[in-house]
Amino acid sequence: MNMLRVWPIVCQFGVGALLCIIGIWCGLRGGYLNLKIAEDRRFVVILVAGFLLMLAIVCIFTFLAPYWANGEPL
């Protein structure tokens, strides 16, 4: 595996996760983001789902899609 292709994913989604955690923690402090309220829970789920969706797309276009039409092994 070419690590020069892996480090960007680790860096972007690692720092990204840190920023997300800071944001959620700042929301939870003081009760502005209240996980007892369904709407707030839904928002956190969407946030996590969006993060994972983007991670999945990036992984597809790093580990699978470049090889689709070339017939080369992963």
């Binding site: 720092v15 920023l19 997300c20 800071i22 944001g23 502005y32 983001l33 946030l47 969006g50 993060f51």
Partner: peptide
């Protein structure tokens, strides 16, 4: 990744 800080 900036969205939680922005929105919350």
């Amino acid at each position: 990744f900036w969205m939680p800080i922005l929105v919350l």
